[in-house]
Design a protein around this nucleic acid. Structure first.
Lengths: 315, 315
DNA sequence: ATCCAGCATCAGTTCTCCTTACGCTGAGTT
DNA sequence: AACTCAGCGTAAGGAGAACTGATGCTGGAT
């Protein structure tokens, strides 16, 4: 009879790649992981791990067994969730990831939740959207609040349940003394091209969703930045805009926080979606659904911001 | 993290109904089963077992968790089979059930197998077809050789892999000095009706497949036995026919063994199928497939019997 | 009234599993 | 070439889990 704990160790090792990292993830010592993997190999009677002095990697058999393990673990998680749904108990440990920009709004709600349910332990992390999504899938997080800058519908059908929390408008953020700020009308392709070309362009490092989406938008209108600065964090970008350092694409909620920054509608409009993710296996877990509700509420109440009313076309 | 062993205990308990029987099945003491179930309840935080002084039964939650457990255990069995398929090792314990009439032919082959593969342990039981089929499903047996008297195609799609080993003809077995035996032509409906009515009818107890199929055949030709005797075991029935006690429907292989018995073709013909069953989860396990091959071979070589050639119509 | 089957509890022993400590290897660095 | 460090494995020890056997209880059957 295979042991679930060993299978979990194997599956985690398949995701992480080193014994040390696996051990850290699961709260074991590396030695324990090594021993458990060795035991598992003995049990199934076939080599699962290729061992070098400073590197261990999975064999084909190990990879396959890890895939089986993932299925088995998903089934047990479903069973556990169903049982917890029956008790209705809001308890246990829920690990949540949130994109940094929204974490300050989420955290107080989670704290309240934890006060209301002493049996519940919430562990919150700040993570980017892409790593958070895969982190939910491989059980590093149970719940993730992410943003999605793509116009495409959210990913689905791969074991992730997606919940739409909010849609935010993305505006062109310029310093308050920028020429465009004086004439706050929606920024057309031509205006955008001109503004980007004549000003420093502020954006996130390559790989961020906001960067990818922004670059796509610039490419669509054939705009090439005169100069490009890369900074981490949307709030940082907003602060830089405020100092007159350049312009950027930013969500209204973030522009709103920052005095000295004017947000201008884009024509056509641009958006990002705030989504929550959890595994479908935990869909019925009361602890998860409660945390999800708290996140939904928190994001709903986070300041949405508003651009200069005169730039807001009436319809 | 739920424990697989506990889940197995729960699932087995769901099938057996008592703690004592569960313990016997799994090779534990009843005390251990009781304790493990209690631990499992504590872990999931909900009552799974309703305890009376001398009866324990599952709650709704317990039944549901048992169903989850069955799925999980099936997944692990699949994983294990895949791993064993990779090693190709013919080892471990394989529990086989065989209908009594064929067990003598199967046993020597299994003994040979065990001699060839010292790592392999074969545990053989003799069981009727219906209990054997459910026994395979709930993991009391890994492999079962059964007979199927129904004209219907074998059951499938419920987790059982069905293998057709042989088709045997069912003949009307009469004492050698029976009037019909002197004129060995296929027994039509009219002749059958007459023979059954004027002679004692020998058959298995109610519930046996052979009994059900035989009764259906009799009902189809509107034949009512003058007198009916019920005995357990096809060989026993054959022996009774030999003493002139009555007539019966019997497979050719069994008639063949028994001197003093004449087998007469039925018109239309009647058959039973010899099938082997195993769980689809063990489909790839080399130990299982090897045992299955041995069974196939054993049944193929078992005496098929032949009725009086003059009764065999040429085509 | 007695017996018996079935279950729970308790104490004890065995065995599993994790941690700590230590040694090894190979790559990058000084 | 020596050093440093990350990663892995093994050995020993201790904590905890789990099984067994004994005991006691309950309710139905003899």
């Amino acid at each position: 009879m295979l042991d679930l704990r060993r299978l979990e160790i194997l599956e985690r090792f398949a995701n992480r790649g080193t014994i040390t990292a696996t051990a850290a993830d699961l709260g074991y010592s590396p030695s324990a992981v090594s021993q458990q993997l060795a035991t598992l190999e003995r049990e199934v009677g076939i080599a699962l791990v290729e061992r070098t002095a400073q590197r261990a990697s999975l064999t084909d058999a190990g990879r396959e067994l890890a895939e089986h393990a993932a299925r088995i673990l998903a089934a047990t998680e479903t069973a556990q969730s169903r049982m917890r749904a029956r008790t209705g108990a809001i308890s246990g440990r829920v690990t949540i990831s949130c994109i940094p920009a929204l974490a300050p709004f989420l955290a107080p709600r989670l704290a309240t939740l934890q006060r209301q349910h002493p049996e519940l332990t919430v562990v919150a992390h700040e993570t980017g959207s892409t790593t958070a999504a895969s982190g939910v899938l491989d059980r590093r997080y149970d719940l993730a609040v992410i943003d999605d800058w793509s116009a495409a519908p959210p990913p689905a059908g791969n074991g992730l349940a997606v919940h739409h929390l909010r849609r935010e408008e993305i505006v062109l953020a310029v310093p308050a003394d920028h020429p465009l700020a004086r004439n706050p009308v929606p920024v057309t392709a031509a205006r955008l091209r001109e503004a980007v070309h004549s000003h420093t362009w502020l954006c996130a490092p390559v790989g961020r969703l906001s960067r990818t989406a922004g670059d796509q938008r610039l490419a669509a209108v054939n705009a090439t930045p005169g100069r490009r600065w890369e900074f981490e964090g949307l709030h940082v970008l907003a602060a830089l805009v405020a100092t007159g350092a350049g312009s950027a694409f930013l969500p209204t909620g973030i522009v709103h926080d920052q005095p000295g920054v004017t947000g201008l509608h884009l024509a056509p409009r641009m958006h990002r979606d705030i989504l929550a993710l959890n595994r479908t296996t935990t869909r019925e877990d009361p602890a998860i659904t409660t945390c999800l509700g708290a996140a939904r509420e928190a994001i709903r109440r986070a300041p949405a911001g508003r651009v200069d009313p005169s730039a807001e076309p009436r319809r």
